[in-house]
Amino acid sequence: MATEFKTYVRQEMVPPSPAPAGQIGPTAWIRKNLLATPKDVVLTILAIALLAYILPGIIDWLFIHAVWTGTSRVACLTVSQGGALPDGTVGACWAVVGAKFQQFIFGRYPSEEIWRPITVMVVFALLLVPMLMPKAPFKVTNAILLFIVLPVVSFFLLIGGFGLEHVETARWGGLMITLILSFFGIAVSLPVGIILALGRRSTMPVIKMLCVVFIEVIRGIPLITVLFMASVMLPLFLPDGWTFDKLLRALVGVSIFSSAYMAEVIRGGLQAIPKGQFEGADSLGLSYWQKIWLIILPQAIKLVIPGIVNTFIGLFKDTSLVSIIGMFDLLGIVVLNLSDSNWATPVTAVTGLVFAGFVYWLFCFSMSRYSHFMERHLDTGHKH
């Protein structure tokens, strides 16, 4: 008796089933990250209790009882202090930030010429955004405009020339100085740091010794000392009649200091590259510079992106030290304006420092998030 066997072959793939409801969504995230173990539950409850204790007071001071408008210190004083606010209800004095906002951003730059730094900031943003987008076209042209053309044009636009009123750098200040120092320091420290790191690993004794001495000497002294020497000591070694602008001295000092630290970050990435990568490049017949620029450096820089961005963030915050040489960045101009008797109140100083801290945090957090984005974008191997 013959038995027939029929074979059924599926002609279409089964569509993927949706994930279980308990494995996706906010509830699943909370269960996985906040309530996974008894210890997590206890820590979550303690964190919520702490936030419930401190957040209401912070929100009340920052927003609810804050003073947003006013023309003098009277707007931020209570009745017992000579103002009009009810006693016990004084919050942040944001009115002082509104009144001093232009100085916080541009320093003592002439009001009628404010359009010049605003133009520079707008053009800088328009060139920076596509530069940070990995798939944006014309990267080389964009880089030339951002790192070569824009600094030259901005210098003449900000300081004056070609019919524009001359504005000496001593009148520059605020966030504008912070951004100028940070951008110049970042733009210089990365390539110089790469050269120093390669020089420190060089087989030529003279080159290696010079790079080692430069890196160790600069890293062994604080930034304040570097700025002081660039501002005070450097002119003593120049010929009679020669001088450098104070801002230029600060730019040189900040760039030298950050380059030494960047060199060590890059050197860490170079040492992390397996020896086989060097041998593979040599087996292809590549020259030294072809091997470095095409094979080694792209991998090394990808490995040390967190360290590079950490150096950039430190540089951005360290620009506040230029006050030692008589320049006023964002923090310096905020502190300077706190001495204005027209706005002297018990909360003015705290409000100004909170504003400065928020601006610093905003820029530093943005750099941090972008570094995470680039890490994910460049993570083509070694995935977990």
Rank of each mutant, 00 (worst) to 15 (best):
V213W: 09
K6S: 10
A95F: 03
Y370M: 08
A52E: 08
L196E: 11
G70K: 10
F363I: 15
A170D: 15
K275H: 05
P16N: 09
V42W: 11
D329G: 06
K135T: 11
D329C: 04
I45H: 10
E168W: 11
K275Y: 01
A21V: 13
G285T: 10
W289H: 13
L128G: 07
I195W: 10
V41G: 00
V152R: 12
L164H: 07
G174P: 03
K291S: 15
P15D: 06
L127M: 04
T311D: 11
F155M: 13
F147G: 11
G285R: 11
A75F: 06
I295T: 13
G253C: 03
H377R: 14
A230Y: 01
D329M: 08
I325R: 05
H384G: 12
M176G: 01
D318V: 13
Q277K: 12
V123A: 02
F184L: 11
I195Y: 12
P130R: 07
M233Q: 11
V206F: 14
A136V: 03
G98D: 01
L227Y: 08
I296K: 00
T71A: 13
G160V: 04
V41S: 07
R171M: 00
I273L: 06
G25D: 08
P16K: 13
L284H: 08
M209N: 15
I313F: 07
K291M: 15
S368I: 02
F312G: 00
P117M: 05
L378Y: 15
V265W: 04
S283V: 10
I105Q: 01
L43I: 07
T348R: 03
Y53Q: 12
V9N: 07
A170Y: 13
P235W: 01
V347P: 00
D60W: 01
V140E: 11
V335T: 15
A187G: 02
T27A: 12
L175E: 03
A260W: 12
F365M: 10
A75E: 02
L227V: 12
W29E: 15
T44R: 05
A281E: 07
G268I: 00
V254H: 10
A99N: 12
L321H: 09
I64W: 02
H166A: 12
I48A: 14
G220H: 09
P86C: 05
L35A: 01
K246W: 10
I114P: 04
P346W: 00
A281S: 12
L190A: 13
G268Y: 06
L236M: 09
V322M: 05
S231T: 09
G160I: 10
I59W: 04
P56N: 05
H372E: 15
D87A: 03
L190T: 15
M176P: 06
L35D: 02
I58E: 01
P346E: 09
L43W: 04
G91Q: 05
Q299S: 05
Y109I: 00
V354P: 14
A197M: 10
V120E: 03
T203I: 06
G70E: 10
F358I: 15
G163H: 07
Q23R: 06
M204G: 08
L321W: 02
M13K: 14
K302Q: 08
K139C: 04
P134M: 06
A143H: 13
W343N: 08
K275S: 09
P16S: 13
F355L: 08
L198I: 13
A52H: 05
L55V: 13
S80R: 09
L145Q: 01
I194S: 02
R31G: 10
A92G: 01
G352W: 08
E113W: 11
A125T: 14
I324Y: 06
W68H: 09
Q299D: 07
I114C: 02
